[in-house]
């Protein structure tokens, strides 16, 4: 039995957006007691109560059931969760990560009231249809450290393609909500609520004046290189997410994003080369 570390779990929960999505901060809702409704073309999703209450929340779950829900998107009753819950990005969480998250979730005061049900249109309200969706579109994150890339790049890869799930908004989706791998991080004009996420490909970011340094700063404060301050859902991402991260993690996210070759979703797994120093600074990384 792995012992979870509540601090590590809380940091990971914050990074992964658990708190941002499952807490209705605008309505002064209790932590993890259920999030603000999310309007999508398929209907309205309501992020459920994840507090340890056995009735209203997930207090009746076991650690194993929690692991399956987080990494595979399947509920304890065997039914699939909607991909509005971004479990695809959490697929590569380690057993230790899951135990840490579980320990952190136990620290939250239980709230007995369950969140409202989703309000989805036919046929999206037929949960069995998700089995087809999973077969056709599910793309669980697989994250491997890349030899020859810097520690910051590798940490950035882990955060961007995993926990921080940048692609959930910045990658286009098909008509059924499946992520379009060939458009990875190329922007999404159809976000829930009618907003848009710009492309965050390295070439585009560099052309707009982003550097590792000013992006790390923006992820902390919201201030962009042109002096404007993030609005829309990115302001929420910063406020409820990246502003809680360590400086090193914000710099890692920026390092990875600014080094990503345009239009390439994930780096090729390189051939190991004993002659390559482990700390290679990649193009786009600003040396200070």
């Amino acid at each position: 039995m792995i012992t979870g570390d509540a601090y590590r779990g809380a940091y990971l929960a914050r990074t992964s957006g658990c708190i941002a999505c499952h807490t209705n901060a605008a309505a002064d809702g209790a932590a993890l007691a259920g999030g603000a409704p999310l309007d999508t073309p398929f209907g309205t999703f309501v992020p459920p109560n994840l507090t340890p209450d056995p009735v209203g929340g997930i207090g009746g779950w076991t650690l194993d059931q929690f692991a399956v829900a987080v990494r595979q998107g399947v509920r304890p009753d065997g039914k699939a969760l909607y991909p509005a819950f971004t479990y695809e990005f959490y697929a590569d969480f380690s057993d230790q990560d899951i135990a840490d998250l579980w320990a952190a979730f136990q620290t939250v005061p239980p709230v007995a009231e369950a969140a409202a049900d989703h309000d989805l249109m036919f046929p999206f309200n037929m949960r069995w249809g998700l089995k087809l969706w999973r077969a056709a579109f599910m793309s669980p994150a697989v994250i491997s450290p890349v030899f020859g890339k810097s520690e910051a790049w590798n940490r950035g890869q882990q955060l961007v393609t995993g926990a921080a799930h940048c692609a959930a908004c910045h990658t286009g989706r098909n008509m059924l909500g499946g992520l379009q791998a060939d458009e990875a991080l190329a922007g999404n004009a159809n976000l829930p609520g009618g907003s848009a996420a710009p492309p965050i490909l390295a070439s585009v970011l560099a052309a707009k004046g982003w550097t590792v340094s000013n992006m790390a700063y923006a992820l902390r404060t919201g201030v962009m290189p042109d002096g404007d301050v993030f609005g829309g859902s990115m302001a929420e991402v910063v406020q409820a997410g990246t502003s809680f991260l360590d400086d090193a993690d914000r710099a890692a996210i920026a390092t990875y994003l600014l080094a990503l070759p345009a239009g390439v979703a994930a780096p090729d797994i390189p051939v190991a080369d004993a002659g390559t120093p482990a700390m290679v600074h990649t193009p786009g990384m600003v040396m200070e």
């Binding site: 605008a26 907003s195 993030f230 609005g231 829309g232 302001a235 502003s243």
Partner: peptide, 19 residues
């Protein structure tokens, strides 16, 4: 200065369309 930026972000996230 960071508090100012957070105030801007808070307002933009609630009352401004787009980025």
């Amino acid at each position: 200065f960071e508090r100012i930026s957070q105030t801007c972000a808070s307002c933009h996230s609630q009352f401004r369309n787009g980025n």
